[in-house]
Design a protein around this nucleic acid. Structure first.
Length: 266
DNA sequence: ATGGTTGCCTCGCAA
């Protein structure tokens, strides 16, 4: 299997990054592609129409691009050194859902999804209902993916804080849509289908974050959330050799409020 | 401190 994952390469680096506008973040994105050289990177919140994605610039760095954009909000993409195959652009289960939040494709022998799960705030609104329904759809679709018994990675901004150790102040976030009991229960049900949280599988230490709010000096005080996750199928988890959160891009000028998370499969 | 910041075909909304 190994030699077929990405042709001549012996390992596969898979990353996820909510860039919060690909237009504004393009210099930082291109810089990170040059430095980190992921084989695949899933992007969220590109915040542009598909036709406006800077496809020539990423081609110049050696990446193919699959894009699901929409005006102003949301939007996901998958950049990869090898071209994507068998692309789907919506999460099955609700034909009326027109948010650009899901993209799934095959790269080499790896199935990969770029996920931008709904935020869900405020909790007393239909946005929270939509969030929980979206996770339920993802759960149902994942159950189908698992039947193939192949390596896959569900990568993205889940807008879910899995555990108290994944947030700087659990009490303050208790009733937020990212940390509500219903949200965490739905996320656990997804993971309990048999998925592995790549970062947590290799890092026991608490308070490792992938997002810091722009407001109130959260970055300067390292008061963040771990909400960007790489969930691996059993066949992918068997090949997991490394996982990291790269904090460096969050500290740069014109940073996204999220920073890249990546894992390596042998 | 019910504050604070960023990005969007911006003057309100989403995060």
């Amino acid at each position: 299997m190994r030699q077929f994952l990405l042709g001549r390469l012996s390992s596969l680096k898979v990353a996820t990054w909510n860039v919060n506008s690909v237009k504004v973040r393009l210099p930082l994105l291109l810089n990170w592609l040059d430095e980190a050289r992921p084989d695949v990177i899933c992007l969220q919140e590109i915040k542009c129409l598909t036709a406006d994605f800077p496809i020539l610039e990423v081609r110049g760095r050696g990446y193919y691009a699959e894009i699901v954009g929409q005006k102003s909000y949301n939007g996901v993409a998958i950049l990869s050194k090898e071209p994507a195959r068998d692309v789907i652009t919506t999460l099955p289960g609700d034909d009326g859902d027109n948010h650009a939040r899901y993209l799934e494709a095959t790269i080499g022998e790896l199935r990969i999804a770029s996920i931008y799960l709904p935020n869900g705030n405020p909790v007393e609104s239909d946005k929270f209902t939509y969030k929980l329904a979206w996770v339920a759809r993802l759960n149902a679709h994942t159950a189908e993916l698992l039947k193939a018994e192949r390596p896959f990675v569900l990568a993205g901004d889940y807008n879910v804080i899995p555990e108290p150790e994944d947030v700087y102040d659990p009490l303050a976030w208790r009733d937020d849509a990212l940390f509500r009991t219903e949200t965490r229960r739905a996320f656990r049900a997804l993971v309990n289908l048999g998925l592995t949280d790549a970062f947590r599988a290799l890092h026991a230490e608490p308070h490792r974050y992938s997002f810091w709010d722009y407001q109130a000096g959260r970055w300067q005080r390292d008061e963040g959330l771990r909400i960007d996750h790489l969930l691996l199928s059993p066949q992918a988890a068997d090949r997991l050799v490394a996982a990291e959160i790269d904090k460096a891009p969050r500290g740069k000028d014109k940073a996204s409020d999220h920073t890249p998370v990546w894992c390596e499969l042998h």
